[in-house]
Amino acid sequence: MYHHDHCEGFQCEQQQLEATLAHSGGELGALDRLIAWFRQRSLFVLAYGTGCGAIEMRPLMTSRFDAERFGIIGAATPRQADVLVISGYLAIKTLKRVIRSYEQMQEPKYVIGLGSCTINGGMYWDSYNTIKQLDHYLPVDMYVNGCMPRPEALIEGFVALQKQIANGAPSGAMRYRENIDWYKANQRRVLGDNMPPDYTYDWYHAGDVA
């Protein structure tokens, strides 16, 4: 079972930034490499403004930092989005909505955890109603460390994610599929009976675990 305990805080970020350097992507076929290149060139972002980090998403999109030059643009609904940005601490109440939105996104899909709160709870480490480690509930592809990280940091995260995609690294959704029991058990632990309905991960029941 996958468990996320070999890194914490900025270590995770560092590892992820470096992981792409090791990965060459040479084993992909030509078409796959082309598709991967298209994918990394066009990321539709579902910015889920959960915590205070959400404030950094606006300058990211507007004139000063202009994320659109990397092909990053906001999406209105989870159906159209490729990247889910969890911006900061996640209240348990919000977690349910986030999980549902994530499950409604279509693969390949990626999750970016923004801010220390998503890595280890940050300054909410002892809060009674926020989750501490996002990775226990959703498969995070990229962490952006800091409290709160500046838009430059977020852009760096996006660029690292793009490199990862271009190299053909599988999206976190794969991990989610493979370890769905573990993720669901974790989710149930905090949400109790208040779980999102199970038809959004219907492939799990259909025995279609890839």
């Binding site: 989870p78 038809y199 492939w203």
Partner: peptide, 16 residues
């Protein structure tokens, strides 16, 4: 391509 198993599987602002 797969068919939604429930007619309530809608993008509904995260709500159910």
């Amino acid at each position: 391509m797969h068919r939604a198993t429930s007619s309530y599987d809608l993008s509904f602002c995260g709500e159910v």
